[in-house]
Amino acid sequence: MLRRRMLIMLGVVLLVVLSLGGYKAFSVYRQIQVFATPKPPINVAVVTANEQPWQSQLPAIGTLKALQGVDLSLEIAGTVKALQFESGQKVTAGQLLLQLDSDVEKALLGTAEAELGLAKIEHGRGSQLVGSQAISKGDFDRLAAQLKKAYASVAQLNAALAKKSILAPFSGTIGIRQVDVGDYLASGTMIATLQNLSSLYVDFYVPEQAVPKLAVGQIAQVTVAAYPAQIFEAKISAINPKVDDATRNILVRATLPNPGGELLPGMFASLHVLLPGANTRVVVPESAISYTLYGNSVYVVVPKKTAGGEPEKDAKGEPQWTVERRFVETGEHRNGRVVVSKGLSAGERVVSAGQLKLDTGAHVAISADKTLQAEQNSQPRVD
């Protein structure tokens, strides 16, 4: 009886072991089938690297300055007697702008001119008398010195009288006046600003590494916040011969015609200096570039090949595609596009969306980048 029970227990244990072993074998078989089944292709957006017109540019920011601009101020103190200009008026060189009270100087000038006349008469009489030895040579020298002193006094008073008025040093537009008739002004008081707006300077800084790319006469495209849709053309007129010790930048000046007078000194300007070089570049969307610490790369779409090196096709005869990761050198970025200077040829197709799911050799299904196409259709092309 005991033996029969032991045989039954052994049979039950054996049955349980066989059942577990069969279940495990079935699980392993299913896993093998899963791994043996080919993975479906990964859907990615693909664009073609095109060789497009591309003008190399050097971006910079600067400030507009007047070709000629001064703050008119007084050299001597006095009371304003007359103002000969209005705020915002255009004036010409030499035009009288302000006259201070000069009655005292005019009276002193009259006295000095009278003394000068007397000195001339005495000097003329003395020149006759010294010839006939009626006066000594020393007396005649004193008469000559008095004549020179009288001339100097008149010249001094004429200079002081000239400082009582302000003349426009050049033609331009005068700003808002800061004084009124009757004001007593101390020396150095600013009357108004005078700016020649026919042309402007654009002063901007560039890194010292960019100096070999710059030359006098190069064109710079300028935009300002006041007219964001308008591009103004300036021409580089001077390059500073010294690099700033603190910033390692160099000052560059461009001349900007301003016949309409719409641009004003002090405006903030954004510039793009047009650089010489090839006019075409291989260009791809910025979304196609993967940026890492080890370098920039793209996923290039290539035909999938069999072990024999032949292009692989599916059951319908359609070619199969895979990707290979390729490191590239990039250049300028502009309007969502980037120049690829090395590592990619025109006509090659690159993945522009879905790179996170990829690795070299991954099987992919190609679809056009509709988002990029919509952006290119809606935005004007700027090179």
Rank of each mutant, 00 (worst) to 15 (best):
G188D: 02
G317E: 04
L251I: 00
K242Y: 10
Q99H: 13
P311H: 11
T79Q: 13
E310R: 10
F140D: 02
I236A: 05
G22W: 10
T63H: 07
L129C: 08
N249D: 15
K148Y: 03
K164G: 15
D244Q: 07
A353R: 13
K235R: 15
P276N: 01
A192D: 09
V179R: 12
L129P: 11
N335G: 11
Q99P: 05
A114H: 09
F232E: 06
I231G: 05
G88D: 03
Q57R: 15
Y294W: 11
P285A: 01
A119L: 04
G126I: 04
V130D: 10
P59T: 03
L64H: 08
M6Y: 06
L67E: 08
L96C: 02
G336F: 01
A159Q: 14
V282R: 05
N240C: 12
L7H: 07
D244V: 06
L14R: 00
V91M: 13
P169K: 14
G308I: 13
V301C: 01
L98G: 05
Y299W: 12
A368F: 05
G308E: 08
N43R: 15
Y294A: 14
L356Y: 13
A155T: 06
I135V: 14
L15H: 05
K90Q: 15
M267C: 06
I42H: 08
A36V: 07
R248L: 14
V202K: 10
L67M: 15
D180A: 15
N249S: 13
G22F: 08
K163H: 09
L67K: 11
V202T: 12
A365R: 13
V224C: 09
G117S: 12
F85G: 01
G117L: 10
F170W: 11
Q218T: 04
T63C: 06
P53F: 11
A119W: 10
S378F: 10
